[in-house]
Computed example of a mutant assay.
Amino acid sequence: MTYEGRTPPYPLFIYLDGQPVLVVGAGEVAERKIATLLDYGARVRVVAPEATERVRAWGCEGAVSLDLRPFASGDCRDALLVVAATSNEEVNRAVHAEASAQRTLVNVVDVPALCTCIVPSIMRRGQLQVAVSTAGAAPSVARRIRASLERQYPDYWERYIDLLGEVRLLVKERVPGEAARRTPLFEALGAAGIEGRLAAGERLSAEDVYREVVEPAIRKADQ
């Protein structure tokens, strides 16, 4: 099945830390997009004839580069990603045409036909992210699924994932040999019920978990 005659998009997470992103538009919708891009470390340039107070403040603070003028040919140059968040169809099409011509990823908000990439609804708990997309067919459904995931994975999951990452680094440092030797240790770690202990308010360090879970698993594997 396709929506609007298009093949479903390929899921991809992209690192934006320090990467150049152009946002065309600076209204309320664009403001929300910019805020998210800044959260992910993007180097944001904004082009728009007018801007909300918050976007102007970001420009004055140096958080974004703000050009208060209409979109012009050449603005997409050097951007890794372009986001068009305007209510002007002509501008949106011009942004899409230029970005596509130079093979730059482009997202035109709420216009799937003018997108080479889309932004999913995201459930985030630190390093844990679950992205939900309906490829523009039913955004409200994607948001409802995200809300359900947020209830399913409460805030303590951020600490849980961070803790597993810390213990994983200890295993890599302390357990020599081929990767296959460490695989059962990681499996034991995931099956140890640590998330339940964190949910109950217990404070655990990486060293605690290594001693309680990993060391017994090493002894069992070596028997």
Rank of each mutant, 00 (worst) to 15 (best):
P184N: 11
E89D: 14
V132W: 01
L164H: 11
R159Y: 09
E187L: 14
G193E: 12
L114M: 13
A79V: 02
D75H: 10
S140P: 00
R182A: 08
A84P: 00
V111I: 13
P139M: 05
I145A: 09
E98D: 04
R203K: 12
S140N: 02
L105H: 13
A137E: 15
T116D: 07
E178S: 12
S140A: 15
R197P: 04
Q152M: 14
R125K: 06
A199G: 12
A94V: 00
A101K: 10
G136K: 01
N107Y: 10
G165N: 12
S100N: 05
A199M: 06
T134A: 03
P176W: 04
N88L: 04
L164I: 15
V171T: 03
K172V: 11
R151K: 14
A131H: 05
K172R: 13
T104R: 08
C117T: 14
L163V: 13
L185D: 02
A142E: 01
G136F: 01
L169V: 15
V167A: 11
G126W: 03
L189H: 02
L189P: 07
N88Y: 03
A99D: 04
R197N: 08
A142I: 02
R182Y: 02
S140W: 01
P139Y: 05
A206E: 07
R69I: 09
A113S: 15
W157S: 08
R69Y: 09
V83W: 04
S133E: 02
A188M: 01
L81R: 01
E166D: 15
V175F: 09
L164D: 11
L81K: 01
R77C: 09
Q152G: 13
C117W: 07
C115I: 06
A131K: 03
A101V: 00
D110Y: 06
V119D: 02
L80Q: 11
V130Y: 01
Y153R: 10
A199Y: 04
L114H: 06
P154F: 10
I161D: 07
E202L: 07
E90L: 09
A137T: 00
Y160D: 08
L204Q: 03
